[in-house]
Design a protein around this nucleic acid. Structure first.
Length: 223
DNA sequence: ACCCAGGGTCATA
DNA sequence: TATGACCATGGG
């Protein structure tokens, strides 16, 4: 994929939606929790679960580990898949705390950090990359379902590439402006993709971005 | 009454 | 390695 193509798409998205100021939520640990809870789930429901955690005074690894599995599941209920997610969140906290939290992990090189995240049960490539980019500020490009859909519709990818192939594709094409700027760009780019996939592209048959290419197909099939 | 959402794992073939 | 079942709530 050409660098200027990706930058053109970025500019279109940015002009259309403006800056996103991601990740929604503040502290790194809250980002991590959100990344796990948002798996195949609407963000609004994740927010409710995070509010529950805050109200239970449990938005911290130690506090989460102190909760019973049943109690944690109850707190996570609005985010769906609550039994699975309780287990995954607990597994994450186990690792996070054993590793010494941010004060230690911030010195880990990205490759090691990524491998460690992927080794946790319930943390797949997208969740790991969300955490790497938005909590650890590492220059990693997050690939999600929207990324595939939008760029497939633009005719820029086939759509059946592996996660790693796509990630390398985007990173290689976009990186190289310095670590700090790469992180900033990857952050905004993924946030814009989600924003776009979330509303406009789903509602309007042909949005401005999609008319970049002629192959704009609807997400919904005609009834 | 559908469809789907900012995925990931596990069991089969 | 490649599909399919499964997890589950809430909004449109």
């Amino acid at each position: 994929m050409r660098r200027d193509t990706l930058r053109t798409v970025y500019r279109r998205l940015f002009d259309q939606h403006g800056p996103r100021y991601w990740w929604p939520g503040d502290a790194p640990f809250e980002v991590m929790v959100g990344a796990i809870l948002t798996q195949n789930t609407a963000w609004i429901n994740v927010e409710r679960a995070i509010i529950n955690l805050k109200e239970s005074d449990a938005l911290a690894p130690r506090a989460i580990l102190d909760l019973s599995p049943a109690r944690l599941a109850q707190i996570l209920k609005p985010s769906g898949y609550f039994n699975i997610k309780a287990k995954r969140l607990r597994a994450y906290c186990d690792w996070y705390q054993a590793a010494g939290g941010m004060t230690r992990l911030r010195y880990w090189p990205t490759a090691r950090l990524r491998a460690a995240l992927l080794a946790i049960n319930g943390i797949g490539p997208e969740t790991a990359d969300d955490i790497l980019l938005y909590a650890f500020h590492r220059p990693v490009f997050v690939i999600d379902a929207y990324t595939r859909r939008i760029f497939m519709r633009l005719g820029l990818i086939a759509g059946d590439e592996s996660y790693e192939d796509l990630r390398a594709l985007f990173e290689d094409a976009l990186a190289g402006c310095g670590r700090r700027r790469d992180v900033r760009l990857f952050n905004e780019y993924h946030a814009l993709i989600v924003r776009h996939g979330n509303s406009i592209c789903r509602i309007k048959p042909r949005c401005d971005l999609c008319s970049l290419a002629q192959r704009c197909k609807h997400i919904r099939k005609p009834a």
